[in-house]
Design a protein around this nucleic acid. Sequence first.
DNA 1: AAGATCGAGTAGACACTGTCTACTCACCCA
DNA 2: TGGGTGAGTAGACAGTGTCTACTCGATCTT
Lengths: 205, 205
Amino acid sequence: MNDEAGVHGEPETADPEDGLRGRLVRVGVELVNAEGAQALSLREIARRAGVSHGAPRRHFPTHLDLLSAIARQGFAELGARVTAEDRETAGPRARIELLARVYLDYAATRRGMYELMFRHDLLESGRLGLRETSLPLFAHLTGLVARVRPGADAAVVAGALWANLHGIAQLWHWGSLRLATGGDDPAPFLTAALDAHLGPAEPTP
Amino acid sequence: MNDEAGVHGEPETADPEDGLRGRLVRVGVELVNAEGAQALSLREIARRAGVSHGAPRRHFPTHLDLLSAIARQGFAELGARVTAEDRETAGPRARIELLARVYLDYAATRRGMYELMFRHDLLESGRLGLRETSLPLFAHLTGLVARVRPGADAAVVAGALWANLHGIAQLWHWGSLRLATGGDDPAPFLTAALDAHLGPAEPTP
DNA sequence: AAGATCGAGTAGACACTGTCTACTCACCCA
DNA sequence: TGGGTGAGTAGACAGTGTCTACTCGATCTT
């Protein structure tokens, strides 16, 4: 996953500027960021897009398909943040650490979207291909892990580390980690996870 | 309506419990285990309990309160499973490993309940004290961690490890971990997480 | 050029949901 | 005896997702 050039003009699935389809997704993204995942009713999205409640059906067969398109936008934004912050000149360990920080920051600042992205009950639909959306990010992480821990099975370590990030984000959001330590910052858990899976940080010169 | 209980003098089978309040929770637990979290509508629970849709309101002011009571039952069952499987004569590292296996097994076999337990949007209500329900389990884990890694901050390591378990359960359930490695068993991620946070397993005597 | 076709959006119905309120009714106690 | 009270019933209300009939304008065909 070293697509050096950040090619921006990808028409891909739906041109955001295109008609109602893109407008519904854009309205949904705004809505989930502003009011959370439970505000994403089909009728409310249609209302804010200025169309009748039956209009979305022409572009998304069911509510889940619309929500999945919104969630896909979230994965895209998360991926974009990671590659935007990435410094290829830095060491792999430092790059993983940055990736992890961006990940946790995204989960914290885009709580509603992050929640939606992993609400499989709202998204799971087999051929929607939503899970595959996170694969490039995972591959990127796996590549970096392989350089930090050459002996280990990089896919397993990367998966376990990703799970750790995800768990920290979720339990922190849920409140139990906060409750357990009394602090107000998940950073200790993050450094503990990074040290555990990658070994202690290299001394920065 | 269909009040066959009064005619036959039903002995309430197992636990007389609390009348309708307990019956609603019991029905909810059966329902979430059988059909998942999205099947837990207030009216369906009332229907299966044989009462009108307004009856639960007498015992649970709102739908969230009923769901929280059901989720609390889930935390209780998880805690019971952990303590039932625990062997105090074993070493702390082995006991943590067993706890982790029980945790992942619970998440896998009680998918609907586990999902409900961490659906903060369905449960979060400030003074419901649901998050506190998981504290004894966390304290148990923290105590064991303190014995395995005496030098470290046990609460932080235990929190990070718990987050790792939670993330593995969730991402495995979600499908992305399965997708990333192609395997069909989350065990590699579990051992990777345990080795990472606790050090490699001690050779079994 | 006229008519048929078709995609896109509208409007209404339907079966649900959670909440609220008015009502019944057995029971308990003064 | 009678008044309260707690528990459960029944109906209303607004909101939801889905489905279907309908309109309407643009495009295509002959």
